[in-house]
């Protein structure tokens, strides 16, 4: 199977002995087969003598995976967790949202038992978080326990866009009242 050939699902494109199975492929009986329609591409992998073989297709279905950085809108807050609607995964907007949850212990890295959800997030905030697990049957579990994670966009009680002051405070530009949030550090 030469490179840059267009293949359909099920076509054999290589063998496990000579290549590593990558995106768009699967293995069966020691053979690597395509699982989507697209072009065959082989790439070098550092520290491995085998090349990785992938099938490049026109469309990648984006689903939150463990470790993905996501943007989510806070929908509801309780004392234990904040429920969010995951709207973007790795910079790509999703057509239909997934439900996510940020639990009290995943809001920040230090003093996790003293976290007050209402002082970290409010409904309507846009939060950058990382997916830490597939969670329970209803929502993914997310975490904002890193400096660059947290609220990236929030609205004050007066309806203005909040301006970050420190990692835990944001200020309303109109009333100059400060509100507590777990703020994402933007570089």
């Amino acid at each position: 199977m030469s490179e840059s050939d267009v293949v359909t699902p099920g076509t054999r494109i290589g063998s496990v002995d000579t290549h590593i199975s990558g995106r768009g492929t699967y293995t069966r009986d020691g053979r690597i087969c395509a699982s989507v329609v697209g072009r065959v591409v082989t790439k070098d992998v550092p520290n491995q003598d085998k090349k990785i073989i992938e099938v490049e297709s026109k469309q990648e279905t984006t689903v939150p995976q463990i470790g993905s950085i996501v943007l989510a809108t806070v929908v509801k807050t309780t004392t234990q967790f904040a429920k969010v609607d995951i709207t973007c995964v790795e910079g790509k907007a999703l057509e239909t949202t997934f439900m996510g949850m940020i639990r009290q212990q995943d809001v920040r890295a230090t003093e996790i038992d003293k976290v007050v959800i209402y002082e970290s997030f409010r409904p309507g905030d846009v939060v950058r978080a990382v997916v830490i697990s597939l969670g329970d049957s209803k929502s993914y579990y997310l975490s904002t326990a890193r400096n660059e994670l947290g609220v990236v966009f929030g609205t004050s009680m007066a309806g203005q866009t909040l301006v970050p002051v420190s990692w835990k405070e944001m200020e309303c530009p109109k009333t100059h009242l400060r509100e507590l949030r777990k703020v994402a550090k933007t570089i």
């Binding site: 910079g91 907007a93 909040l162």
Partner: peptide, 14 residues
């Protein structure tokens, strides 16, 4: 403070 993101993302969020 502005949300730096692509047009698609802004369209979805706001």
């Amino acid at each position: 403070m502005k949300l730096e993101a692509s047009a698609d993302v802004i369209r979805k969020l706001h």
